[in-house]
Amino acid sequence: MINQGTILVIDDELQIRRLLEITLSANGYHVVEASTGKEGISLAASVNPDLVILDLGLPDADGLEILQRFREWMDKPVIILSVRNSEDDIVRALDQGANDYLTKPFRTGELLARIRVAMRHTGEEKEDPVLQFGEIVVDLVNHTVRKCGVLVKLTTIEYNLFVLMAKNEGRVLTHQYILKQIWGMAYTEQTQYLRVFMAQLRKKLEDDAAHPVLFNTESGIGYRFGS
């Protein structure tokens, strides 16, 4: 099996590390393990992994601290895997540079999908003028969106929001992040705008607005485009 890349797992639970080792190796990743934050940092420096899976509740340091230290010198994707499921914790981790999060207990299938998305985003910095998602085609040059070949009329904000989401396909974007990007710094609390426009986008672009597949809600945190 071709090597898909090196993944550093930092978790103090042996059982979880073993599970990840088996699962990830079976999917072609090379796995390096660390059971403490300190060990994790030194391993990251020596191995230079392609992705880090980080537990927030480490015995020697808070996971958020480790994340901060990583972000000082490393831009490789970090996925948070933690039993902490409070929305505040998750949003803080995302704000501090985590690429994605999963709460324990988790489905391994889900984890693998997140790993793939995270790795893809780091690899390519291409500026493709046309994005395609199933029946929907976005022309970034002409600012047009077509569904099944039919032009969909979007307002400027709707378009910008859609493009922001589409460019980050598979990644979770926090409310604050989206609001800041589209409306500006002063609007990070105005979630109602986001709700309204998201509803509009779903109405215009989803096959069934009641069962969205493109614009997914991450309760209390933000949105994720695609699955």
């Binding site: 979630t191 709700r195 309204v196 998201m198 509803a199 069962h211 969205p212």
Partner: peptide, 15 residues
């Protein structure tokens, strides 16, 4: 409390 769309709510739960 934050603004939310009840469509979102029901979708999420049903999903």
């Amino acid at each position: 409390p934050d603004w939310c769309d009840v469509h979102d709510l029901s979708n999420q739960v049903i999903h």
